[in-house]
Computed example of a mutant assay.
Amino acid sequence: MLPSTRAFLERHAAEHPVAAAPAAAAGPAAAAAPSGTVPNVVGVHLLLERDGQVLLGLRHPDSAYAGGSWHVLAGHCEAESATACLLREAYEEAGLVIDPAGVELVHTVHMRERPADPPRIQLFFRARRWEGTPRLREPDKCAAWQWWNAEELPEPIVPYARAAIEGVRAGRVYTELGWGR
């Protein structure tokens, strides 16, 4: 084990000690989860590219999250796989039919925007094949779809979307944001 990895693990163990749980904890799920375990929200994102441009949506100004900012097509996983969620969201939000055989995971962002927020895993998928032209199907969430030069992204843009697009362009597959390091 590398010294830096060992130091990280030792620091993490000291900051998050595992409390001894009573033998009759609240069921098998409680017994399996170490103390301090927090579920992560899983988001899926579509990185749709053509001719050096990426598709971004302008979030409705009244959106609960990032109103008035540009963002890739995205949604939260429900009781479904990440790929199924991506296909569903692409159709619901923009009327696009994505070929699941042409989908690949290209970047992951593990983030926390504020200390009190739940951590999030943001999965970015590239679709090599799709049918349809992006159209507004949820105007209460998205005010416009537009293709942008990937080297000249608009402002304001959701920061983790920018980090992922730039990461993909640089050949990186993973980014961490908001963990205070």
Rank of each mutant, 00 (worst) to 15 (best):
H76Q: 14
V72G: 02
L46A: 03
G52P: 04
A30C: 10
L73E: 02
C77V: 14
A32Y: 07
V41P: 02
C77N: 04
T37I: 10
Q53P: 02
E78H: 09
L56W: 02
G67D: 02
D62Y: 12
H71V: 10
G36H: 11
L47I: 11
V42R: 04
V54C: 07
L73V: 11
L47Y: 06
P39T: 08
S35Q: 09
V38I: 13
T37R: 14
R50H: 10
N40R: 12
L73S: 01
P61L: 09
A31E: 15
P39A: 11
V38K: 09
V72S: 02
Q53A: 10
H71G: 09
L58W: 05
G36A: 12
D51G: 15
G67W: 03
E78P: 00
A31R: 15
H60V: 06
A32G: 12
L46E: 00
D51M: 13
A32Q: 13
P34G: 10
G75P: 01
L58K: 03
Q53H: 10
C77P: 03
L47K: 03
G43C: 08
Q53V: 06
W70A: 00
R59P: 00
G43T: 02
V38C: 07
A79C: 07
L46S: 00
V54T: 02
G36S: 08
V41D: 11
P34D: 07
S35T: 15
N40I: 10
W70Y: 08
A74P: 01
V41M: 13
L48Y: 05
V72P: 00
G57S: 09
G36P: 01
A31G: 11
G43Y: 01
G67A: 06
L58R: 03
P34L: 07
A79L: 10
V38W: 05
P34C: 07
Y65L: 13
V54S: 03
H71K: 11
A66H: 04
A64S: 15
P39Y: 13
S63A: 15
G68V: 01
S63I: 03
A31I: 15
A79G: 08
L73I: 12
R50K: 15
L55Y: 00
L48A: 15
L46G: 00
A32C: 12
Y65M: 12
V38A: 12
P61R: 12
H76S: 08
G67P: 01
L46V: 02
S63G: 05
V41N: 11
V41W: 08
D51H: 14
V42Q: 06
A33S: 10
A33L: 15
V72L: 14
S63R: 06
S63F: 07
W70T: 00
L48M: 15
G43Q: 02
L48V: 08
L55G: 00
E78A: 09
L55D: 00
E78N: 06
Q53E: 13
R59E: 01
S63L: 11
S69T: 05
L55W: 00
N40H: 14
G75F: 01
V42S: 02
R59M: 04
L58N: 02
G36C: 05
A32S: 13
E49Y: 05
E49H: 10
A64T: 13
H71T: 08
A64D: 14
S63K: 06
V38G: 04
C77L: 14
